Simulated scan of single mutants.
Amino acid sequence: MRWLTRDDLGAAGRSASGLLVVSPDAASVFPLGPGERADAAAMTGAALKAAGVSARDRVVVALAEPAGALWAGAAADVAGAAASVGPRGRMRLHHALTSVGATALVATPTGAMDFLARLHLEFLLDPLDLGLRTIVLTGENAAKRTMAYLAKEFDAEVTEVYASPFTGAALACRTAEEEPFVPLAEGILGLAALGKDALDPDEGELAEVVITPRGHAALGDAVLRTGQVSRGGLAPAHTVGEHVLVRGVWVSLLRIQKALAKVDGVSGWKLTVSRQGTLDAAVLTVSFNRASLVKNPMWKSRIQQAIHGLTPVQIGVEVAPEVSEAVTPGVVEDQRGHHLGRDRSLAG
């Protein structure tokens, strides 16, 4: 039995075959053969049916790729019509919903909440006028009471779907946040200890959600660590490891570390992630080992350009005012309370 992480999948990308589902930063490469593609579409369609989507519905999918196309394709097989419009632009989303006469929306939890906030505060529109009957949330850890609040504001049925962090395909769903997710197929999801490669950790312990794609043509008996952590059942509320989930996108801490290592004078860094409003925000604070670099705009610009090329997530860059001669490892300050640490063995 092989235990693989997101970085392991990325390292094997050069030899992978079939349809390769590549994450936005290319840190993960997940191979899908014809059978796996059919299974992913079927399970995503089953999740939509479980959420109440039927042939009378018209579905708009507001997710980033590669998940957007997969969900729209599955929705087209279940609903009367489906469209993938991407996650950006709330006014554009509103126009898309009205243009196609959407009755169902698939979005991230923060995307749906931000859309609702803008309907009220910027567009001065009543969300009930959209006529949405169904909202499906996926791709992020939802804040408390998100499902109930959206259900009330849109007068819609709200379902949360746990999707594969590698492909975006649906794996489990629930209709209330206090409930655990119910897998859409037996044997595909499990829980594993954080500090060792072992399934079925002790009850009540923090445990990592793992995917066991038995029968996968390329991965076989592999156990895939998702980086998502739960306590007491299949209800992930945290993350762990070398990737942080920001705005529905996994940000690689190792790639940040390698990029900053190429910039002369960097002695340490801290990635701060917060959610003060409806959306996540990320800021990278860099420490220099020489006073001449602290207020040097060229050095800050170099770091901004290096980070900009790593991920589609917008990450602000700040420079620590104090000089730090000692080299220190990069750290994550997750003010949302999601990320437990880079080292799995210390997170429990």
Rank of each mutant, 00 (worst) to 15 (best):
T311V: 04
A261R: 10
V240G: 01
R247Y: 04
L224A: 10
A326K: 14
S230E: 09
P236W: 00
A281Y: 01
V244I: 15
E318A: 15
P321M: 13
P236L: 01
G215M: 10
T311H: 05
V246E: 04
G316D: 15
F288Y: 15
H308V: 09
L293R: 02
T226S: 14
P321Q: 10
V286Y: 02
Q314L: 10
V229Q: 00
P213E: 06
T226C: 13
T226I: 13
D280H: 07
A326Q: 13
N296K: 07
P236Q: 04
A326D: 12
R290M: 07
Q228N: 09
N296E: 15
V246W: 00
V263H: 08
E318H: 12
R231K: 14
L245V: 03
A306R: 05
N296C: 08
L284N: 09
R225C: 02
V283E: 13
V249T: 15
D264P: 04
R214Y: 11
G268Q: 09
E242D: 15
W299Y: 15
Q305Y: 11
G309P: 00
V244P: 04
G232C: 14
A326G: 08
I307S: 02
V313Q: 05
K295S: 14
V313M: 09
S252V: 07
R275M: 10
S301N: 12
P213S: 07
R275H: 05
A218K: 03
D280P: 02
S324K: 13
R255D: 06
S324F: 07
W299I: 14
S292Y: 06
L224T: 01
I307H: 00
G316P: 01
Q228Y: 11
T278V: 13
A306W: 05
E322I: 09
V246P: 03
A326C: 05
V283D: 12
V283L: 14
G241C: 04
I315Q: 12
D221N: 14
A281W: 00
P312E: 11
V294H: 02
H238L: 07
S287M: 06
T311K: 03
R231F: 07
L279S: 11
T285Y: 06
H238Y: 09
A326Y: 03
L279G: 01
A320T: 06
T311E: 08
L284G: 10
A222Y: 02
G309Q: 08
E242T: 14
